[in-house]
């Protein structure tokens, strides 16, 4: 097997991206990658030649990520989906009319040169959503899945799915309004 000292340069970026895509926290991602390298070093004898070093390291990292997420879920009792729901309620007054009117959008994200910046903001807004809601939105609008497929994958009812899509869209709309279109207001 290759010398562990070259792991960092050879696989560091890849593992870091892998962790970051799942954890969304650069500091934690770094830590998990480092732990992965050290764990791999200790268990070097168990490395099976059938696998490449990259898949072997990735497998270790995946375990570390799962452990981390489990631990974090135990710690975070209150889910922020409720908070999102409350903030969306605040758009309407008691008789169901708009209290905070949807603003006129000054820019059209269809224009090519604006698109990249718009996508940056959309992505930021999306990562700010509660994890489950963001996931459902991505399955529906990026991967184009039908509601039934999403229900199956996420193990939720159709009604629940529609409600979460409504929340995702409303929250994204507001976030974009404030961070992109709001500039022209």
């Amino acid at each position: 097997m290759e010398d562990p000292s070259i792991w960092v340069d050879r696989y560091g970026d890849y593992l870091y991206r892998f962790a970051l895509a799942r954890i969304h926290d650069p500091v934690v991602a770094e830590d998990l990658v480092q732990e992965t390298f050290l764990a791999a070093l200790k268990s070097r004898r168990n490395f099976e030649k059938r696998a490449t070093v990259k898949t072997w390291l990735t497998a270790i990292l995946r375990h570390k990520i799962v452990d981390f997420i489990r631990k974090r879920q135990r710690e975070r009792v209150i889910d922020n989906e409720e908070a999102l729901d409350r903030s969306l309620e605040a758009f309407f007054n008691d008789n169901g009319h708009w209290k905070i009117h949807p603003a006129k959008w000054a820019h059209n994200p269809g224009k090519h040169y604006e698109q990249k910046e718009f996508l940056d903001i959309l992505y930021d807004c999306l990562t700010g959503l509660p994890r489950r809601i963001a996931r459902i939105f991505m399955l529906r609008e990026m991967e184009g899945l039908q509601t039934e497929e999403i229900c199956q994958q996420m193990k939720i009812s159709a009604t629940n799915c529609w409600t979460m899509l409504y929340r995702a869209r409303s929250a994204l709309r507001r976030c974009l309004e404030l961070n992109w279109f709001g500039r022209g207001l």
């Binding site: 994200p109 990249k116 939105f137 991505m138 709309r173």
Partner: peptide
């Protein structure tokens, strides 16, 4: 606005 978000979300994959 919801339909605009839908239209542009299709490009999000490549962007990410």
């Amino acid at each position: 606005q919801l339909f605009r978000i839908r239209a542009i979300s299709r490009h999000l994959d490549q962007h990410i």
